[in-house]
Computed example of a mutant assay.
Amino acid sequence: MRPIPAQLSGRPFTLAEAEQLGLTRRMLSGDRFVRVRRGVYRCSDTPPTLRLQVQAALLVLPPGTAASHTTALALGGLTIGRHDELHFSGQGRPEHDIEGVVLHRRRVRLNTVLVDGVPALGPLRTFVDAATVLSMRDLLAVGDWLVFHEHVDVLDLRSYAIASHLDGVRKARRVAPIVRERVASVYESYVRWDLHAAGLPEPEVNVDILDDHGTWLARGDLVYRQWRILVEYDGWQHERDAQQRQRDHLRREALEAAGWRVIVITVEDMRRPGTVVSRVRQAIRQAA
């Protein structure tokens, strides 16, 4: 059996490249290879990661094309929005429709960066582009995530949205002013959006909570200091060990002893955001 050329390992490759290295179509149809898409293959022991799927698409897209929109975000570590489409931007037109690929044609040459070794549009442009395919709730999560991971500065994000004249910029301009620093999870962003959309006051994000004597009690996710209300997202309540659960229990007791009300939001709660808003609204009314 003919050995697989080493330069084909760990990446996608075209039919033409394989034939140049002495592989035939019949060999490529064997169990040592997998067809990724029309005219593109990988070795069967090469994992079909997102990065490989994007690289495979770029092999059949026009030169100068780059990952964009939610695909650029996913390459960087944030998976959000639909998972059945890969988004790219570029000036050219493909020779034929490519299944599962959306190509956004641009009139001008785009500035790109490398994300996980793949050409992609920069984070500021990606924030505005994402507005064309995401809800404002998801877009807030994108903005918070970009700022938290230091891909963009929050003031630069707002300035870019104001100065841009791109598709999606109207939605981006509505969301950018409420993007905040220190938002550590997508679910915190979702709760923040739900509270904002319901017209409730904006909480502080990830700040220290002290008692009346200045003693540190906790670091809170979403904090209404005026009413001593702490809203926390807890996605791991069933997976913590006994020691961690005990620490959580003592922490909550200390907060409640100091007059704080703790509202814990779980994964199940996130399926009914209206109930989360109602709980927070009721807590504010009672405290006021």
Rank of each mutant, 00 (worst) to 15 (best):
A74Y: 01
L110R: 11
T49A: 11
L124K: 03
L121M: 09
R158C: 09
L103P: 12
A131K: 09
I80Y: 08
G168V: 00
V101I: 12
L110W: 05
V102C: 05
P63I: 00
R107M: 09
A56N: 11
H149L: 14
A120E: 05
S44L: 01
S164L: 03
R137W: 03
T79M: 11
H165V: 00
V108C: 01
V54N: 01
C43T: 15
T46S: 14
S44R: 00
A163N: 15
R82K: 15
G100R: 15
L78T: 00
M136P: 03
T132D: 03
L110C: 08
R105M: 02
F88C: 15
D129P: 15
P123I: 03
Y160T: 00
V118W: 05
R106F: 00
L114Y: 13
A130F: 06
V133Q: 11
R125H: 12
D153Y: 05
V54I: 07
P123D: 00
G122S: 12
S159C: 13
I162E: 15
P119S: 12
R125G: 03
S164Q: 08
P119Y: 10
E95Y: 09
G77I: 03
L146S: 10
H96M: 10
R105I: 09
D167S: 09
D153H: 13
D97P: 01
V113D: 06
T79P: 00
H149A: 13
I80S: 13
M136Q: 10
G64F: 14
L73T: 03
H83R: 02
Q91H: 06
L58V: 07
N111V: 10
D153L: 00
D153K: 07
H96D: 07
R82I: 11
R82C: 06
T70V: 14
A163D: 13
D138A: 07
E99D: 12
P48W: 08
V108G: 05
A66Q: 10
Q91C: 06
L61C: 11
A57F: 05
N111K: 11
V118Y: 03
V154A: 04
A74D: 01
R125N: 09
R107D: 06
L121F: 10
A130I: 01
P63V: 04
R125M: 02
A57H: 00
L146T: 14
H151P: 05
L140W: 04
R109F: 03
T126R: 13
A56D: 08
A57G: 00
H149E: 02
M136R: 07
V54K: 09
T71H: 02
T46E: 15
R51D: 05
H69I: 03
V108L: 07
L78G: 00
F148L: 05
Y160R: 04
A72R: 04
D144F: 06
R93Q: 10
V154C: 06
V154Y: 03
T70F: 04
L86P: 05
H96C: 08
E99W: 07
L86Q: 11
F148W: 14
G92K: 04
L59W: 11
T126G: 12
A67L: 09
H165N: 13
H165A: 14
T70P: 04
E150K: 14
Q91S: 02
L166C: 06
